[in-house]
């Protein structure tokens, strides 16, 4: 974890950029990076159900503050432009975005980071809520990531009835092909994923001999990092951020 000293120079650039996503289509992304020659590791952030919102812009800058080239693509851009809430509501109303499309978009974002001159050649993927599920999918279905962080991703475990045309395979069924070390942060009071589903996921990771660490926080439910929502739990969130940066530091430095 980056420890700031008062005699340090600090600066970052945060701006909207465009990168080629699924099928080469140009997508908007929020990029935040430290000012300096690097080399810096990269992180792709996958936003949550409420969309490409202010929380995710703050989180992107947080990664940059801690020394990462951080990019957060707008996964919902194909549905149009408007406020993040309105666009996300439209996506929610059509059953979400297709898993194949998200995975290809994330691979494109990773390639974008790898092309930056201040990049160190290693990229992690981080997501919360639906983004946590997507982060796991991206780490299973591509070789583009060197570390993955799934924060309370619901529907990694899915019943047959939950499968749809856009989400045709339960992410847990891709576990054998997970290609990066995995960090999972979960709340014991969460209902999606439930602690039982997290345990099922963990058993599958163990069965395939995957490198992972899961942390289940008591007194926390879904979204306990979100300081702008009632689910925020300061102690669990700060501990979680600490574990996250320790994990990424070990695998991406």
């Amino acid at each position: 974890m980056h420890e700031y000293r008062t005699d340090m120079y600090e600066g970052m650039l945060a701006e909207t950029v465009a990168f080629p996503g699924d099928g080469g289509e140009l997508l908007s992304a929020y990029l935040a990076r430290p000012l300096g020659p690097g080399p810096y590791p990269g992180v792709v952030l996958i936003h949550h159900l409420p969309g490409w919102d202010e929380y995710y812009r703050e989180a992107t800058r947080r990664f940059a503050y801690h020394g990462y080239l951080a990019i957060c693509p707008d996964l919902y851009q194909r549905e149009g432009h408007g406020t993040p809430e309105d666009v996300a509501a439209m996506v929610r109303g059509v059953g979400g975005v297709a898993d194949d499309q998200v995975v290809a978009d994330m691979a494109g974002a990773a390639r974008y980071l790898r092309a930056l001159p201040s990049h160190n050649g290693r990229v992690g993927v981080f997501g919360t809520c639906s983004g946590g599920r997507h982060a796991y999918l991206a780490a299973c279905r591509t070789d583009d990531f060197d570390a993955a962080v799934d924060c309370w991703g619901g529907r990694v475990v899915m019943s047959e009835e939950e499968l749809t045309e856009k989400q045709p395979v339960a992410p847990i069924d891709y576990t054998e092909s997970l290609s990066a070390p995995l960090l999972g942060l979960f709340g014991a009071e969460d209902r999606s994923p439930t602690p039982e589903q997290v345990q099922q996921h963990e058993e599958e990771l163990r069965r395939h001999g995957k490198e992972y660490e899961f942390h289940m926080y008591e007194g926390a439910g879904h979204g306990f990092f979100y300081h702008d929502r009632g689910a925020y739990r300061v102690e669990q969130a700060m501990d979680g951020w600490g574990k996250l940066f320790d994990f990424l530091g070990r695998h991406l430095a």
Binding site: M90, R92, G93, G230, A231
Partner: peptide, 19 residues
């Protein structure tokens, strides 16, 4: 669109949302 999922505004983990 009637969803039982995360709301944007009310302070609930899940809400009945109608758009």
């Amino acid at each position: 669109s009637v969803t039982y999922d995360h709301p944007f505004h009310v302070r609930l983990e899940h809400a009945l949302n109608i758009d």
